[in-house]
Amino acid sequence: QWKVGDKCSAIWSEDGCIYPATIASIDFKRETCVVVYTGYGNREEQNLSDLLSPICE
């Protein structure tokens, strides 16, 4: 189960590419979260089910 502060990978809606991110907040009722893309600072809402394991850098 994901928690705030977890590192993950998420698909950015603008280009469909996968980027490393950190979970900033979680809404368990809606099963969504807000991620912050590492190195970019962009925030975006994602479905918890769409999150991927962190990418090894």
Rank of each mutant, 00 (worst) to 15 (best):
A21F: 10
R43I: 08
Q1I: 03
N47Y: 13
Y40C: 14
G5E: 08
L48N: 05
I23M: 02
D27E: 04
A10V: 13
Y37C: 03
T32V: 10
K7F: 11
W12K: 01
G16E: 02
C8M: 00
K29S: 12
Y19F: 06
I26Q: 01
F28T: 11
G16H: 03
T38F: 09
S9K: 07
D50L: 07
L48S: 01
C56Y: 15
C56P: 15
G16V: 06
V35K: 01
R43G: 03
V4M: 00
A21D: 00
L52C: 04
L52I: 06
E31K: 14
T32P: 05
D15N: 11
E44Q: 07
V35W: 08
Q46Y: 05
N42P: 02
Y40N: 15
I18F: 11
L48V: 04
K3D: 13
V4R: 00
N47R: 15
N42Y: 14
E44T: 06
I23D: 02
Q1D: 13
N42T: 15
P54M: 10
K29D: 13
Q1A: 10
L52T: 01
K29E: 14
V34H: 01
Q1M: 13
E45R: 09
E57T: 15
V4Q: 07
R30L: 09
A21I: 12
E57Q: 11
S53Q: 14
G16P: 06
V35Q: 02
P54E: 06
S53Y: 11
E31H: 11
S9T: 08
C17W: 02
D50E: 08
R30H: 08
T38Q: 05
E45N: 03
D15A: 05
I26G: 01
K3A: 12
I55M: 14
T22M: 08
V4D: 13
G5T: 03
I23C: 01
Y37R: 01
A10T: 03
S13Y: 08
R43M: 14
I26P: 05
V36W: 07
I26R: 01
L51N: 02
D27S: 05
E44Y: 06
E44V: 05
A21L: 06
L51E: 02
Y37K: 00
D6R: 00
S49Y: 09
P54Q: 05
I55G: 12
L52G: 01
E44A: 05
T22C: 06
S25G: 03
G5S: 04
S9H: 12
R43A: 12
E57K: 06
L51D: 01
V4F: 04
S13P: 02
T32R: 08
S25P: 03
N42V: 15
W2T: 13
I11M: 07
S49E: 09
K3E: 14
C17E: 13
Q46I: 10
E45G: 04
W2V: 14
A24I: 15
T22Y: 11
G16C: 07
Y37S: 00
S49N: 08
V36A: 02
I18V: 11
A10R: 03
I26S: 01
T22Q: 07
